[in-house]
Design a protein around this nucleic acid. Structure first.
Lengths: 240, 240
DNA sequence: ACAGGAATATGTACTTTTCACACATTACAG
DNA sequence: CTGTAATGTGTGAAAAGTACATATTCCTGT
């Protein structure tokens, strides 16, 4: 904002301009049962009875915008140090029935099997992204926008590891890519491309308790501090 | 925003939450004298005396967020139907000295030689992006973020035509790419890549008044309605 | 103990894309 | 009409991406 004092501005009252509430909404992705899931809460608004909505909250008066989604994540999942990426800000007049609210959407990648993870509210649950038809507010559009950005990001940046436990097999990794992109990948080419990128460390360990030949286990290269909290606009998606 | 009524929310007063002002800031790019320029205004705030800032304004109470940058462009340049792309929302607590203001940044591509273009304010002027060191507020960061996004976008999407007049030569087009990307391009490979993309229509006309062999003139393929006002989050950058 | 099943691991030929690079042509200027 | 400065075009080499088949390992069931 450059000019608080343009003529046009001064004509309007202070009251008007501080009548817009600011919120954040989090599209929290996880990977379970071979599917990409998103964390949703039952809407408690009459207008959206029976519908689910994203997890969000108003931005506090003494809270940086970027703090807010971390707080929401923390409050809702117990997780901190999650991967978050700002996606888009939605601000149509009629998007919220209770008043003027603009919202900044973030997507987050979490491992729902992490020991720290716990859902603190009964009405919050995981939903496969593919089977969602209608959400409260404009949240379906927000979700679709985030999903699109995730798909773009995932090919270029080593962020999917945030969906997985510390140790994982190449098969699990490939399954995630397939779930996110919605396409099948050739196993040999997938592994080759991945090895070229040098994102992985071979742990020289094997899967256990699988009903078939166990695969090798890998972890993400430690230098990929993908879930740090560097300013998002700088490019949190590390390019290796 | 999903839940207006969480416990945490209700504890805080209405007053608090409507104390955040919402603005937009426009990084308005043009191409002149072989350089990428950005439109800036002298800051009228004491804190930023002598510094320039981006063109922005508060979002009106009855104005869609996405309307606001179009309005700013219209008011400041006389242009409508410009190309605009939302980039990022900046909302740190201390970013505006006069109070809590979060701002959504857009970049815009305009042709400053368009007949409709006119600057309506003496303190508004073009500046080469490369020579800018310090701007008011966090506007240098905003500018850098927009420039980065422009660089990414320009390789994939046919948006640079918005910087050019209706008719242009391949040389002019290449100059723009070089100015935006900050690198030199091989002429033959550049032309080849472009022809493959099928973005151009050969006008079978020639440059005039050039001090050397004239080049052929082209225009952007009409189906690239790049400056339409489709919802930004859908993907305004047409993929051909 | 062993055979069968199911998934892992790996290499090679082919195609497409990217990149580096040189020479003939045209119009204007003097 | 000659020199200059830019336009216009093609080819070969390297790199990246794609398609594809066989051998191996471990678990399971008999």
């Amino acid at each position: 904002m450059g000019q608080l004092k343009t003529a046009a501005t001064e004509r309007r009252s202070h009251q008007d301009f501080f009548n817009i509430a600011v919120s954040v909404d989090c599209v929290i992705f996880s990977y379970q049962d071979k599917a990409l899931k998103v964390l949703l809460i039952k809407s408690d608004l009459k207008e959206f009875e029976g519908l689910y909505s994203l997890l969000g909250d108003l931005v506090g008066p003494d809270e940086d915008l970027e703090e807010a989604p971390y707080r929401v994540l923390q409050e809702r999942t117990g997780l901190h140090d999650v991967y978050l990426e700002q996606v888009h800000t939605f601000g149509n007049i009629g998007r919220h029935p209770s008043g003027r609210v603009i919202t900044t959407a973030y997507f987050s990648l979490v491992n729902s099997k992490s020991s720290n993870f716990q859902i603190t509210h009964d009405d919050v649950s995981w939903h496969p992204v593919n089977s969602l038809k209608k959400l409260a507010f404009d949240h379906k559009i927000i979700l679709d926008t985030c999903l699109k950005q995730l798909r773009d990001a995932v090919m270029e940046h080593p962020i999917v590891f945030n969906l997985l436990p510390e140790k994982f097999s190449l098969r699990e990794l490939q399954d995630i890519y397939e779930a996110i992109l919605g396409i099948e990948l050739d196993r040999r080419n997938f592994r080759k491309r991945l090895m070229v990128k040098d994102w992985l460390v071979d742990l020289a360990e094997m899967e256990e308790d699988v009903p078939h030949r166990p695969g090798k286990l890998y972890k993400a290269r430690p230098s990929l501090k993908k879930n740090g909290r560097a300013p998002l606009h700088i490019d949190q998606r590390l390019v290796v």
